[in-house]
Each structure stands twice: as C-alpha cells, then as structure tokens.
Amino acid sequence: MRKLTSKTIRNAIRDNAIFIVVLLLIIITAFIEPSFITWDNLLNILRQNATIGIVACGMTYCIIAGLFDLSVGSIVSLSGVIVILSINAGVPDYLAVGYGLLAGIAVGVINGTLVSLINGRSGEAFIITYGMQVVVAAIALFPSNGLFIAGRVKPGIFMSMGQGMTPIIIFLSLAAIMQFILVKTRYGRQLCYIGSNISAANMSGIRVKPNRISYFAISGLMSGIAAIVLCSRVTSSNPTAGLGYEMDAIAGIVVGGTSMSGGSGSVFRTVLGIIIIGIMSNALNILGITAYHQQVVKGLLIIAAVSMDIWNKRIKVREIANEKAYIG
C-alpha cells in the first residue's frame, strides 16, 4: 500500500485540481441558489449531456489509441436524418435504429481504413476525420435540402429511447461497459499498448491495423447511438444537429484528464469531464452569467486542463529521473 505522505497528497491534489475547482464552484453556487443541488437539477444536467457524453465515450478509445475522430458530429447529424427518414417511410423502429447505427459504423470503418492505409498517427487522423466530417455533414444535408425534418414517431422502442431516465441509463451503462472492456479485457489492454507505442505493439505480434479500424468503428457506433437518443428526445431530426459535437466531446475527455498523447486514459474520467462541464454551465446559468461569458469560462477550463496534463507529466518525468538516478 502507498503510504499517505505529504507527497502522495500533493500528487492527488495535482491530479484532481480541476475537480477541486469545480467543487468550489458548486459550493458557491449552492450557497447563492440552494435549488442548484437537487436531484431534479442533477438529473436534468445528466439528461442534457447524455448525447454528447455517449459521443465522448466513443471518442475516448480513439484518443487513448493516440488518434482523433473529428467526424463524430457529422455522424450524429447523418444517423439522425437516416433514422427519422426511415421511420417516416414506415420502416419498423428496430430497422430504422439499425440503419442509423450502421451508418455510424460505416463512416468509422472508412475513417479507420484510410488512417490505417497510410499508417497515420494522430496528426493524419485529425486531417482525415476532418475531411470525413465535411463530407458526411454535406451528405446529411442532401435528403431534406438542409431543412429540419419532423418525425412521425409512434410509441415504441425508438420513442422510448429519448424519454425520462432512458438517455441517462443508456449513457452511463455504455460508459460502464466501455470502461470495463478497457481495463479488464485483452482488447482494452491492446488498445493501451497501441496508444503508447504502436511500433512496439506491432513488433510484439499485436494486429495493429484491424484494432485501429475498430476504434473508429466504435466511435462511429457510439455517435449513431447518440443520434438516436437525440432524435428520439426531440422526435425530429435536424441535419446540422451534431455541429460542434466533436469539440465538446474532446473538451469532456480533456477536462476528465485523459491525455491527448495516448497510451492511458479512462472512459470513467470522460464521464466525469462531461458532467463537470455540464454542471459548470448550469451553475453559471444560475449565477446569471450570459452564454457568451460562459463560453469564455469553458474555453479557459479546457486550456487549464491541457496545461495541467503537460505540467503533471513534466513533474512525473523529473521524479522518475531522480528515482532512476538512485537506482542506477
């Protein structure tokens, strides 16, 4: 067991600095407006952030693998359009949902194949998925000429997915499953090896290419699920619904503390990151801060999170260097 020394306490504070700041914000807000900490408000925050949370969980695998997926927002738009159009065309619910998910997986597989073909790293993945984002966003606009599509939704599986507690349950259970796979299975461990040192993973007999394609496929699938939850909630689809999702997802991942350099991270922390951003906007709303000002705070929070990550890493490297000096 690790001894509770001042050093370990200091490390714990450093690793969780963002959480501490937000905790302070919560306390202050709660003093000013007691209704802030009620179950209703908390559930509301979770419900509002469930879709973006699902997307962020999917993208977490890509980030741990040392990759990027910027196409998620466009996938949310496209999958949503496909589901609502299918339902309006009289396709049964489960099939419509299936089409939406397939579209997400398909875009992911294309992303992954392209990145794998050129043996790309995060930089190439960034550009390729950005290209896909543009293409897929345009495709989502074709069917309705960019207009909003009202869904003729009947009660059923699809309708229930966006109602009441369901989005929250979907979000948290998917996150739990992904975290479990990441930590407890071979697939998850290989993901970490590939993210930390892809050459060493390859030279250790790990099938790098198919694995990397699967991370994009999962990211696409999760975006498809998010689209379904979103469309079900509003019983319609907006072909630009996913605009900006990719950045919000990355923000959640970074604030949660998963490193952009790959090799380590956690879906659990992504969930925390998303909730923190959600709670923060909600608190700022309650405190009467305008949306524009809120954007400033959010931006600063993201910058702080990344800086902290780099800073922590540097301290750790220095500690290791010192340790090494007295080992050898």
Partner: peptide, 8 residues
C-alpha cells in the same frame, strides 16, 4: 522505439 512500451 520498437521493443518495449516504456511507460508501462
């Protein structure tokens, strides 16, 4: 570079 995952 290719033999080990050093941080692990």
């Amino acid at each position: 570079e290719t033999g080990l995952v050093l941080p692990f």
